[in-house]
Simulated assay, not measured.
Amino acid sequence: MNKKKRLTREARFQQLMEEAWRLIREEGTEALTLGRLAERAGVTKPVVYDHFGSRTGLLAELYKAFDERQTALMDKAIAECEQALEPISRAIADCYIDCVDTQGREIPDVIAALAGSPELEQLRRQYVRIFIDKCRRLLAPFIGSGTLPDAAMWALVGVADAVSYAATGEEITAADAKAELATLIRSQVERFRK
């Protein structure tokens, strides 16, 4: 008798996450339902509901995984680079673009789906604020007694999203997106330096 090995809860969660990303890549976020995910993963609906609770919970987990990957890449890059404005601005830009590029067109779709729900949009804004605070801390040594205002930081995020999505959509190269974002980061620091 050939029995299937039962996955641990963590292994099942990872399998479902990978299948969810694959489903979005192949069919878009509109096709992402817990029932469809269960079907594609070869499990029952209650298994998927047990892990995510709802479609909103699944989208939140997908965005959280993306954000954690982006944070880990950025932390590693910052730790390994020279602590000067140019290399730090390049590290921030490179990590942002690389992480979106690695995830492909799926992350813009997930972010668009997040915007469709007040609860999910609040979650995304929470992660953006964490990113803004991290960048502000990283750039603080280069701004003198000045400060990077919230509007300037949100503008950086807006540009980062725009150029990363343009690179993912092959409208510009990833190298051009990275260079433009790094230049903007440096110019914002110079603009508010005192």
Rank of each mutant, 00 (worst) to 15 (best):
F52M: 10
L120T: 00
E121N: 09
G146S: 08
R125K: 14
A38C: 09
E119T: 14
G42K: 10
L184D: 01
K3M: 15
V47A: 15
I24W: 00
A77Y: 05
R186I: 04
F142C: 12
I111T: 05
A84L: 10
W154V: 12
I88D: 02
T168E: 07
A79F: 08
A72L: 09
R186G: 09
Y63H: 11
A166N: 05
A162D: 11
D109Y: 10
A182N: 03
I97K: 02
P46D: 12
A115D: 13
A174N: 06
G158R: 07
G104S: 10
A31D: 09
E61V: 00
Q122M: 07
A31N: 11
T173D: 10
T147P: 00
T183K: 11
M153P: 01
E86C: 06
L73S: 14
I97S: 00
I143K: 06
R125M: 10
I172A: 09
A152Y: 05
R137T: 09
Q70H: 11
A166Q: 12
L114W: 03
L58Y: 04
L181P: 02
L85C: 11
Q70I: 00
L59F: 10
S89Y: 03
F192Y: 15
A175P: 00
I24H: 04
Q188M: 15
E10Q: 14
R9Y: 14
E19Y: 01
T33S: 15
R125E: 09
V128F: 03
F13M: 13
R22M: 05
L184Q: 12
R129G: 04
L181A: 00
R137Y: 06
L156G: 04
E82H: 11
D50A: 14
R36A: 14
Q83Y: 00
T56K: 07
P87R: 13
A166R: 10
D109L: 15
L58G: 04
L16E: 03
A177L: 00
M74Q: 14
G116L: 07
L16G: 02
H51C: 06
V43D: 07
V163P: 02
A182T: 02
V189N: 02
L58W: 03
A113C: 09
R25W: 08
E190K: 08
E170Q: 13
E30S: 14
V189Y: 01
A182F: 01
T102A: 15
R55I: 04
L139T: 06
E39S: 12
C135Q: 12
L181G: 00
R69V: 05
Y96W: 12
H51P: 03
A174C: 12
L85Q: 06
L139M: 13
R105K: 13
D94S: 12
R105I: 06
Q103K: 02
R136M: 01
E19T: 15
D161S: 07
A79H: 13
I107A: 00
D94M: 05
L138E: 12
R105M: 07
D150S: 13
D98I: 02
R69G: 04
E121Q: 09
K178S: 01
Y96D: 01
Q126F: 01
V43M: 08
L181T: 03
I107L: 15
